[in-house]
Amino acid sequence: MTRRSETPSRAAVLRRSDALFGMLLNLPAILLILALIAFPVLYSLWVSLLRYNLRRPNDVHFVGLGNYREILTDPMFWHALQVTLYFAAGCVIGTLMIALAIALLFNETFKGRALARALLLVPWAMPGVVNGLLWRGMFGKYGGVNALLALFGADPHQSWLLQPTQALNAAIVAQVWKDVPFAAIIFLAALQAIPRDQCQAARVDGAGWWARLRYITLPWLLHPILIVVIWETMNGFRAFDLIFALTGGGPGRATHVIAWQTYTEAFRFLNFGAANAYSYLIALMTMTLSVVYIRLLYRRGQIQG
């Protein structure tokens, strides 16, 4: 056996020890991430493959995709999905339109714009449950919405949250109200990134306000719109705190969204296996939708560079 006469150069030693030292410094963060994210994610995947009902703590056993099969044949799931799709669609459309309008307005210069922009952020800063409680008051029999409608001569004693369709629409309004500020800020930032001469060139080319919005502004905003659509779709699919505080899934099952279904499965029926399967289904659906959106919008929106 010949001994290697070469010793590693000093620089190489330093390099290796540098890398090791770097890893060492990163270790706490990596461990934290593993403990707080990777472990729960993988553990819940594992639980979703088990029959795991706390009412029968001794009967925990592997069922493979059994939970998923059960869910997909459960009419409750399909009902919740339908409600969720309606809710999410309403939220996406509502947020998009209103946020865009506000962003266009706030992009103009007017007195007090800085203050208005700051105030715009208030709803966003509100926790979901607080938002739900606030709108429960607003939509209550003696709430602000009725008071407002009374001004226009409408029946001032409607119980919005007790009528199935209205309750779901009310939930959409509440969610949109909370999410508009963030979306508007994104749009506003994007609007300010549009070079001014684009708009001026269009004006000289003969474009009026609508034509500029349609042919210049909106194409420039495609990416931000995509971001907001994905973000708001996720919000729609995950909406739980708002529903919890506003309607509790009712009246009947009118606002029984899929996140609420997950909650009831876990904490009412203590059926953790099925609840985890639900979580994974939600994640899968939002992911699929995001991919579709990106396919549809991303390339078309690639304009800079």
Binding site: Q200, A201, A202, R203, V204, D205, A207, Y215
Partner: peptide, 28 residues
């Protein structure tokens, strides 16, 4: 500006990046 019957060439051209050359020229 749109009713003045003028055309302008800007210093940095201000072409519409999301349109091709043909569409840029046909836009007006």
């Amino acid at each position: 500006p749109k009713d003045r019957d003028i055309a302008m060439v800007f210093q940095n051209y201000a072409l519409y990046p999301h349109m091709n050359v043909y569409e840029n020229m046909a836009f007006g």
